[in-house]
Design a protein around this nucleic acid. Structure first.
Lengths: 153, 153
DNA sequence: AACATTATTGCAAGTAATTTGCAAATAGGG
DNA sequence: CCCTATTTGCAAATTACTTGCAATAATGTT
C-alpha cells in the first residue's frame, strides 16, 4: 500500500513535477479510499485534512497522474456519468457490475491477459492494458429475483 | 443487417411502444452508420432525412431502445465523455483502442465468454454481458513508434 | 373514416460533471 | 534568500445530457 505511494512519489519526481502539498495529499487520499472513488469523493475526503483544497486542483492532479501512468480512470455504466479513479495497480484489473444494485466487484483473471496476448500477436498490435467488465446480477440480487425452485409455493 | 432492423421493429411492437416515424428513422440510421456512433452523430445523420428531428428525441429513443435491450451503450476512454450506441448484436462484443490514434477495432473472442461463465459459476452471479477492452497501440502506431531494429541508423 | 386516448415529440430551459482563464501563491534550483 | 516557472484557488464557461410542458400523432374503438 504505502509501497505504492512511494513508487508514485518517485515517479512524480522523475516526471519533473513539483511535489506540492496538494499532490501529496491527493496521492495519500487515493490509497486511503476504497476502490474507484470519483473526483468529488477524493476531494471530500482530502478536504478533511486541507479544507482549502479546490475541486479543480483534484481534477487537474488526477489527470496529471493519469498522464504519468499512476492513476487509471474508469467509467461504469449505470453510475451516472462521472469518472472514477484508481491508483495504478492498487486494485483488481477487471470488474463485475450488478445491473440491479449497482454493486461493483473487482477481480483478477490471468486468462484475460492470455486472451490479450493472443489478440496482440494475431493483429500485430501492442496491448498495454486489458479491462474486462461483466454485467449481470450479483449473488444477492440473483437469489432475490429467481428464488429456489418451488420456494414460495 | 435488415434482419436486425426487423427484429428490432418486432420488439418495439411487443414492448407496447408506438412505432413513430422518428423511431423508425433512428433505428434505420443505426444500421446505416458505422459502429458506435454518438447521439449527436445519430442525430446529424438522421436529420438528413428529417430536419425537424430533435436531439432530445434521439436521446430519449436511444435510452428507450437500451431499456428494451435493442441498443448497447458504450463508453470509450479518450473519446471525450459522451456515450456511444450500437444496435445489439450488430457489432463485435469486444474492443481494441489505440491510445495514440484513437482508432477503435471490434472483435469477438469466445474465450472471453468462457472466462465470464467461469466467474459466474465461482461467484454464484449471473452474467448477462461481457465486454473486454484492450488499450494499446494499433499496428500502424506501433510500427511508427518502434521502427524495425537497425532501421534508421 | 372520424374520434378519443394517451404515448411521444419539439422546444427551451435546466443540470451535473468537468474544464479553463487568470491572478496570486509557492516549489525548487541557483 | 531570490528568481522563475509551475501550480493553485476561484469563478465563469463548457459539454453532454435531461426534463417540463404544451402540441402532435399513433393506435384502438366505434
Amino acid at each position: 500500500m504505502t509501497d505504492l505511494l512511494d513508487r508514485a512519489r518517485a515517479r512524480v519526481r522523475a516526471a519533473g513535477g513539483r511535489m506540492t502539498g496538494q499532490r501529496r495529499l491527493i496521492l495519500e487520499t487515493l490509497t486511503a479510499l476504497p476502490a474507484h472513488p470519483t473526483a468529488e469523493e477524493v476531494h471530500a475526503r482530502a478536504a478533511r485534512r486541507d479544507s482549502a483544497l479546490n475541486l479543480s486542483t483534484v481534477y487537474r492532479t488526477l489527470h496529471w497522474l493519469e498522464a504519468e501512468g499512476l492513476v487509471e480512470p474508469r467509467r461504469f455504466r449505470g453510475h451516472g456519468r462521472h469518472d472514477h479513479f484508481d491508483l495504478a495497480g492498487a486494485h483488481g484489473q477487471h470488474h463485475f457490475l450488478c445491473t440491479k444494485c449497482q454493486r461493483v466487484l473487482e477481480f483478477d483473471e490471468p486468462q484475460v491477459e492470455a486472451v490479450a496476448r493472443g489478440y496482440a500477436r494475431r493483429h500485430a498490435v501492442k496491448v498495454h492494458e486489458a479491462s474486462l467488465v461483466l454485467y449481470g446480477l450479483c449473488a444477492e440480487c440473483a437469489a432475490r429475483r429467481a428464488p429456489v425452485r418451488g420456494g414460495s409455493a
